[in-house]
Computed example of a mutant assay.
Amino acid sequence: MSIPLRAAGAVLIAALLSGCGASAAREDAASSAGGRFGAALAAGDYRAACALLAPETRDEVEEDAKGPCGPALRELGLPPSGPARGVDVYGRDALLRTAGDTLFLSQFDDGWKVTAAGCVPQSTDEPYRCSLKGG
Rank of each mutant, 00 (worst) to 15 (best):
E60M: 11
P121I: 03
G19R: 13
T115P: 06
G82Q: 01
F37T: 08
T98S: 15
A30R: 00
A94S: 00
A65Q: 11
L95E: 05
A48Q: 10
T57Q: 06
D59N: 13
A7W: 12
D59T: 13
D59V: 12
C69P: 02
E126T: 13
L132D: 01
L78G: 05
Q107I: 09
A40K: 10
M1R: 15
G86S: 00
A33E: 09
M1E: 14
A94D: 01
P79Y: 00
E75D: 15
D101V: 06
G118R: 00
V114N: 03
L95R: 09
V120M: 14
A10M: 03
G35Y: 03
A39D: 08
C119Y: 05
S31N: 08
A65R: 10
Q107P: 05
A39R: 05
G21T: 07
S31I: 05
I3C: 11
G67I: 02
M1C: 15
P55V: 12
A7C: 10
G91F: 00
I3K: 10
V114W: 01
D101R: 05
P4C: 05
G34M: 00
I3Y: 06
R97T: 13
Q122F: 14
C20L: 12
A84R: 07
G82F: 01
G86Q: 00
A43D: 03
R47W: 02
P79M: 04
A33S: 11
G135W: 13
C50G: 12
S123H: 12
R58Q: 08
L76T: 07
F104A: 05
P79K: 03
T57L: 05
S81N: 13
R97S: 13
S32L: 11
V114L: 05
S106K: 08
L53Y: 02
L52C: 06
T102F: 05
P79G: 04
L17A: 15
L12P: 09
R129P: 00
A42N: 14
A10K: 00
G86T: 01
L95V: 04
A14D: 14
A99Y: 07
D88S: 12
R47A: 15
P4E: 06
A10R: 01
D93R: 13
G77I: 02
A24R: 11
S123E: 13
Q107G: 11
R26V: 07
G38T: 06
A43G: 03
I3Q: 12
A48K: 10
A7L: 13
F108N: 15
K113A: 09
L52T: 01
R129D: 05
G9W: 02
R47D: 08
G100P: 03
E75N: 15
P80N: 05
R85W: 06
G135H: 14
P71R: 12
S18C: 10
G77A: 06
T57S: 08
S23T: 10
D101Q: 08
R92P: 07
L16T: 09
Q122E: 15
K66E: 15
V114R: 01
E56D: 15
